[in-house]
Design a protein around this nucleic acid. Sequence first.
DNA 1: ATGGCGCATGGAATGCGA
Length: 253
Amino acid sequence: MKLATWNVNSLKVRLPQVLDWLAAEQPDVLCLQELKLEDKAFPLAEIEAAGYRAAFSGQKTYNGVAILARAPLADVGCGIPGFADEQKRVIAATVGDLRVVCAYFPNGQAVGSEKFAYKLDWLRALTAWLGDELTRHPRLALLGDYNIAPDERDAHPDWQEEIHVSPPERDAFRALTALGLADAFRLFEQPEKSFSWWDYRMMAFRRNFGLRIDHILLSPPLAAACTGCHVDKAPRKLERPSDHAPVVAEIGH
DNA sequence: ATGGCGCATGGAATGCGA
């Protein structure tokens, strides 16, 4: 079974790339972030024609998340229960015996800003909810754009900003793994300077000036069955790419 | 210190992302 996550930075613009990628990679589950479109504009017909079903929660201009899956999606929920938020950042669904949570974590803008405080509040709420969710669903995967580079290896040495690498953000990431969730990427040997996002500017992709901020966290039974995890840089090389690349994890039976 | 690119909105210039 193949699980994947991809921040597409506008599903409207990236739909042809998403359809090509689905056809080529045949994931069982693909989580999308930054749809940047309202639900009425979601390209459901095209995705169903590609052999996938979809659960989605979108809004105009910003945010927006979706789970695409070959199998039916059950028990769909949007947002973090008990955390009032107009920003569409979380969607969860059960696919077979798997609980899939797709999340677009807040950017945070700058350490100490209002948006940074929101990021930390959001992370606290997410972590508390997932603690509950794990008791109900032992086979759980949290996929998405975390906007956190968990440790030193996950940021280019020349990354100057504090955002995405600050101690409070990394503490919040560790609070998630402390629930028992494993970073699928780090279950395996990986090339040095493996990243999942590269700025559009400064020829960042060509220089591999990036961050690893897109992650797949797996609960213990899934981590035990995980046979591989990698970043697929191919879509980042296309014309008009998203600034993020897909991350893929393979799970055995 | 700033902008640099791309996307959205709206129909130019601005906000935002990371």
